[in-house]
């Protein structure tokens, strides 16, 4: 597909959540709660990221199901690929870096992303 991935506010929120624990797998519902994005917004973004090769997806395996979840259906899991992390870092730093410089503060999720990017979070004032 040729859809563009925009660095919209919603995309950046999701990237912040995904980069916070970049090595871990994330679940859709958990991401929705963490970012405050509705499923109708979240999943199209996930689809576009996956399509660009920036998101890795995987289904839970039946073995882990039996062990962990007592027979519940397997869930879809997501994490950024290496190229996805690189793009996310750039997108987040490009956006919040300039905003942080102008406003001198970040919201918690953005701070989270900033920490992950290896830069010091800006304090109030």
């Amino acid at each position: 597909m040729g859809a563009n991935v925009r660095s919209s506010k919603q995309t950046l929120k999701l990237l912040a959540a995904l980069t916070a624990k970049a090595a871990s797998w994330h679940y859709g519902y958990a991401l929705s709660r963490e970012t405050g994005l509705q499923s109708g917004t979240l999943y199209p973004i996930l689809m576009r990221l996956e399509e660009r090769g920036w998101l890795e997806t995987q289904w839970e395996t039946p073995q882990s199901l039996a062990e962990k979840r007592g027979g519940r259906p397997p869930r879809h899991m997501y994490r950024l690929t290496a190229s996805g992390r690189a793009w996310a870092m750039e997108a987040l730093s490009a956006t919040y870096g300039s905003k942080a410089k102008s406003h001198g503060r970040l919201k918690p999720a953005r701070q989270h992303a900033r920490i992950h990017l290896g830069e010091p979070a800006l304090e109030r004032g």
Partner: peptide
């Protein structure tokens, strides 16, 4: 599979 992914989250 994306629809199935959303469906699978219902249990949560």
């Amino acid at each position: 599979e994306w629809a199935q992914a959303m469906q699978a989250e219902l249990g949560e």
